[in-house]
Design a binder for these strands. Sequence first.
DNA 1: CGCATATTCAACCAAATGGTTGACCAAACC
DNA 2: GGTTTGGTCAACCATTTGGTTGAATATGCG
Lengths: 111, 111
Amino acid sequence: MSNDLDTVFAALADPTRRAILAMLLEDDMAVTDVAEPFEMSLAAISKHLVILTKAGLISQEKRGRVKWCKLEPDAMRTASVWMQGFGQFEPVNLDAFERFLEVELPATDEA
Amino acid sequence: MSNDLDTVFAALADPTRRAILAMLLEDDMAVTDVAEPFEMSLAAISKHLVILTKAGLISQEKRGRVKWCKLEPDAMRTASVWMQGFGQFEPVNLDAFERFLEVELPATDEA
DNA sequence: CGCATATTCAACCAAATGGTTGACCAAACC
DNA sequence: GGTTTGGTCAACCATTTGGTTGAATATGCG
């Protein structure tokens, strides 16, 4: 049920994975290229990519022998919306934000 | 460095902890009362509260023999801002939200 | 003082996490 | 066809995580 949030937040809790997401913000990348800047085996990066994929944060498409990784930022929405639920009590001006919530929020149940 | 995000996202990755935060949204609570709805030992909840405290998501103040837990939603801001960096490419109507960001965002660095 | 209440500490445990290495499979190249 | 290239799989390992229980430490109450 809250499994979505579980996997997304867990995926985001690792600095390597966040760095990968940031890289993919620039452009789609092949697995090998994703791995290149890290001092870590390709297999390890491959595992990170699986975790990101399961969280829905990226998608992977194999073209030829190259597997391309693409950022899927929409997966962050649920988590983001959940977090925003806590922002509403902050003192700063949230008028624009509240208008945003009215449009975006389906419901605010959560356990 | 990105340790902030590490601890906050990791803290949010657990459903029990998210439920606790949601409860604290209503009001400040004593540790025992926080633990009450969960089918889990008080010690376990106490540990969860430590994790939330270390992440800065709650604060705990001892008054008498009771320790009160208070939500600190500001700790979510860094994480939220980091995530928003990915949202800016989403197609859906974010006008209200973007106005919100313009006011709220300090900077968007992170790796 | 003596007991109940509120909370943490310490030791322990099973399962999950993040990494390694080496074998393996599939596509591409000469 | 044989070899390089791209990537995953499998087994393994150390550490962390999320839980337990029982003892310990305050604080408050009669």
